[in-house]
Design a protein around this nucleic acid. Structure first.
Length: 272
DNA sequence: GCCAACGTTGGC
DNA sequence: GCCAACGTTGGC
């Protein structure tokens, strides 16, 4: 039984250690088969180790103007050591692994076809935000099961992992969407329901900024030193958080969640 | 082992 | 460019 996966790559140029890590669907189509090197995340690596030849995959454009699904691909070679981890010149060199005991692995991926209709992440999010299981008329063809499959995708629930599992139902739905399109008249910027979740979140964000500004002004008025002001809990909300879980050795827990390691590429992909 | 500081991913 | 979410690091 063949399985389904999603792999991210960055279509836009970005220089890491003097090398461009860009890898777009155009690059992929030209090259046809490529080693998926540079993954430095245990969970992603473990998923790659599960991949079998002939498994199918979704090729995703990440960290770009219009992120989304650009092509379909298949696994053409099962996991083998990622030699780029041993090359000090390589963007994803990892000093903490050696050839006797490889830590990082890659698979080969072969281009199958472009998505006839590029599937923007915004569409998948739009679908995931539908509160009922009834698709809008434009997307009736994916059915309730399609809606539910998209709702369950790691892409919309987790986001950051560069190699993900895709359920068979999600795979089928993605194929349908890529084949048939039809969402041109949907406003993907708006939430499907009138009470826009997105707008609510956005308003909260703006409110927080306003509040933060007020605190800054208060700090100034009270002559609080800047580094003390920095400790305000309303300042830099992303920087101050309680950790969610205790730190575990990711090597010890195969298949556990973990972190993308150091010199790492977000998409875990490095251009030839 | 906790937690503040800091780094990365990646959408918007 | 901004910043939320999530990750790691290092002092204590």
């Amino acid at each position: 039984m063949s399985k389904f996966w999603l792999l991210k790559a960055e279509p836009d140029s970005r220089i890491v250690k003097g090398k461009d890590v860009k890898f777009s669907v155009d690059d992929f189509e030209k090259i046809q088969t490529t080693a998926w090197e540079g993954v430095r995340n245990y969970e992603a690596r473990n998923l790659m180790k599960e991949m079998k030849a002939e498994d199918m995959a979704v090729f995703y454009h990440s960290n770009c103007k219009v992120p989304g699904i650009a092509a379909l691909a298949k696994v053409s070679k099962e996991a083998y050591p990622d030699y780029t981890a041993w090359d000090p010149k390589h963007p994803y060199f990892d000093a903490k692994t050696d050839k006797e005991n490889p830590k990082w692995y890659m698979v080969d991926l072969t281009f199958v076809e472009r998505a006839k209709n590029f599937i923007p992440l915004a569409l998948l999010r739009y679908i995931a935000d539908i509160s009922s299981t009834t698709p809008p008329p434009e997307l009736e063809y994916i059915g309730e099961d399609g809606i539910n499959a998209i709702k369950g995708m790691d892409l919309v629930t987790r986001g950051r992992l560069s190699v993900q599992r895709v359920s068979e139902e999600a795979w089928n739905t993605i194929q349908l969407l890529a084949e048939r399109g039809g969402w041109d008249d949907l406003n993907l910027k708006a939430s499907p329901q009138k009470k826009s979740n997105k707008a609510t979140v956005e308003n909260k964000r703006k409110a927080k900024i306003t509040q933060r500004k007020a605190v800054d002004e208060q700090d100034v008025a009270e002559g609080v030193a800047p580094d003390v002001a920095e400790q305000s809990p309303l300042r830099a909300p992303g920087r101050k958080r309680k950790r969610e879980a205790t730190n575990i050795d990711p090597e010890a827990v195969e298949g556990a969640q973990d972190s993308e390691a150091r010199p790492l590429r977000r998409s875990g992909r490095f251009r030839k």
